[in-house]
Amino acid sequence: MITDFVQNCIDGIMVGSGYSLLALGFTLVFGVLKRLNLSYGPSIMLGAYVGTWSFLNIADNIWLVLLTTICATVVIGIYVEQLCFRAVSKETTIASMVSSFAIWMQLEEIALHLLPERTYPFPAFFDSGLLEFGPFTARSEYLFMFVVMLLLLLILHAFIYRTRIGLAIRAYSDHPSASAYMGIDGSSVLFLAFIIVSIIGGIAGFLILSADSQITPFFGLWATFKGLIAMMLGGIGSLSGAVLGGLILGVIEANAFWYGDPVIRDISSFMLLFTMLIIRPGGIFGHKIEIHQKIASERV
């Protein structure tokens, strides 16, 4: 009994590290922009489609797939940034969100034109293997994803909190107009943030899909959902919160799936999200958010 539970938790953490990767991207872009980019998941999906396309049409080389996936995601990220976030006036946050949704629809259709069948194989990063730890097991590609995720967290954390560019990004996200007086160019910050977020997205998409070994257009919706939920669970704007949110979501889903079924798994994750938003809107690790909201409301 207890071994089942522990095994579920291990599985959950493995799958959850994919959610964490997506949540990292979400939390960064929301932290900087204060606007929701709904097309984040779909841009990763289309990027990965370009990756698969290169795999099917150019060469059977896993590094090529990784590279094309990341590059394509970055290009799409820039497209989204220019169209939905830079040009749309800052006061109307809903307009950005709805236009990012419109672009989502567009990206999905482009993906279907690029590769007209719905499901395509996605190359595995290395041969899947089952690692055994006593009575417990973990798949090697998930373990790899988990390690990459932790590494990315460390790199991002150092970048945001230890470098001058990171300081400029944080200053912009805290108070955009004040940062302009410090000589920070807001549009460069936005551009840079989107590039970083797209690179993370590309890596996330590549790792998740190569563990699944297939891709469908539904990946876009899936990625947006999982990333959003994990981000909200952990608390917006916190990097480690995003990671923990992803892992918690993974563990809960794995257990709900084991003791229930796929529908119960999905209901329980939404139920958790809903309850938490009502009781503790700042996320599990985000007392800061409350202060933030307070200050913001004082300023209005």
Partner: peptide, 21 residues
């Protein structure tokens, strides 16, 4: 600037750092 406009969510040390960007 008018109304000061410091970065409320950053520490004082970090605020000073932004001045030197």
């Amino acid at each position: 600037p008018e109304n000061r406009l410091i970065f409320p969510q950053m520490t004082i040390a970090e605020n000073l750092d932004t001045g030197a960007l």
